[in-house]
Every structure is written in C-alpha cells, then in structure tokens.
Design a protein around this nucleic acid. Sequence first.
DNA 1: TGAATATATGAACATATATTCATATATTAA
DNA 2: TTAATATATGAATATATGTTCATATATTCA
Lengths: 104, 104
Amino acid sequence: MSVGAESIIAVSGSELDSLADIFKAIGDPGRLKIVHSLLARELCVHELAQTVEMTPSAVSHQLRLLRGLKLVKRRRDGQRIFYSLDDAHISTLLSQALLHVREG
Amino acid sequence: MSVGAESIIAVSGSELDSLADIFKAIGDPGRLKIVHSLLARELCVHELAQTVEMTPSAVSHQLRLLRGLKLVKRRRDGQRIFYSLDDAHISTLLSQALLHVREG
DNA sequence: TGAATATATGAACATATATTCATATATTAA
DNA sequence: TTAATATATGAATATATGTTCATATATTCA
C-alpha cells in the first residue's frame, strides 16, 4: 500500500505527536536492534537479550514500551513469551531510512 | 524507488546506528514539526519559529542538528536563510508512519 | 510442594538532551 | 559608520530517559 506525498501535508497536531512517539521509539539504538531482530522472525525475551546484547530486564523494559505503541505483539509458549512485529509498515520505514543512509 | 523487505534484514551495526540517529531526529516533536512544515515549501528560520511555535534560537539549534544528519539543507537569501528538506525519502517515512497511526 | 527458569516491574541513578539566555556574526538600509 | 534585522552558538539548567538492581509473578518439572 502506498501513500501520495500530498497526504502527509494534512496532519493534525496529535497525529504528529503520535508519529513522533513512533520515531522516538525506533530512534533508540537498543530498541531499533530489537525491532530489526524481529524482522526475520519472532524471538523470546531471552533470545532477544542475547541477540542485541542487553540484559533480559533492559529488553523487557523496552519491549513494554514498544508494545504500548503497538509496534510489537507477544504470545506465550510455556515459560517463554515470543515477541513479533505488530506493524506491517515498519519494514518499509526501515527500508526508506536505509535508503537515506546509503544514498546520502 | 522501492525496497524489498528482505533487504532490510542485512544491515550492519553502524548502519543501524545511523538509522537510529535519523529516527531519533524526527522523534522529537519540535523537530518533527519543523520537518513537517518543510514538506510543503522552504521556510526561513523566522517563519519556522512562528509555524512550530518555538523561539528562533531553539529552531536554529534543532536545524543545526537536522542539517548535520543531512535531513535539511539551507540557502541564503539576503538576511534570511531558507531551509528545505534534503531528503527525498522523508515524506515516504512520514507517510508510512502515518499509516501505522491511522490504521492502528 | 519446592526448585528452577523466564519474564515483568518499580525505584534509583546516571546520562542525554531540549530550551533559555546572553552574546556573536552577518546582511541590509539609513 | 551606525542601527536594525536575521541567524547562530556556547553555557547553564531543567527535564527526560535508558539501565541496573532487587524483587515479584508465572510456568514447568521433579
């Protein structure tokens, strides 16, 4: 699904604030690593902690924030809780930003 | 120009850090308002300050940061300095995030 | 039940950061 | 040159925030 550039012009103040919340969320290196790790497949907290080299506690704190913004969702499987992306647009977001980094 | 979702999987650590810098930049409400204001047309510092309801000094500080990330560029016209977006991908970034906000 | 594992959470702390204020620089006009 | 306008910048401050640590909750297995 694509959006014309003109539609971004008409954005309410509260929508802008919501957008800022999302960008701020993936603007933290740790949280961005978490989100990036979940692009490939769902991961439990323990796996995420190892992958992004953070303590399980720190990961859990950040997952809570990401979940509050509905960027990730979770499902329990026994003792473990698996997290996955809850947003079809995130990979596009990352891809577009990557273009800026690589072309700039 | 579009990018397949798979290409975002292979991203180096330093690229992820650069991505985080970009998202953090537009993750601040004030800076996001600035960027959003520049979607329509170029604006001088004075106009931007009025538009986003910040002091010229605060706007100048944030423009400096945005310019460092090559998200905006500037040109002098007499006493005034006009700022404009220096990134073709930003409107796409904002549009995709807006989809999340509106669909979620 | 009790132990072990996995995850969550509140408080505290250390760091990062956005704004303000004072001041500096640059351009234009008188 | 002098005054006025526009923008930039450094220092200081107040606030926000990511991590750590201790602890709590939940599930599984012996």
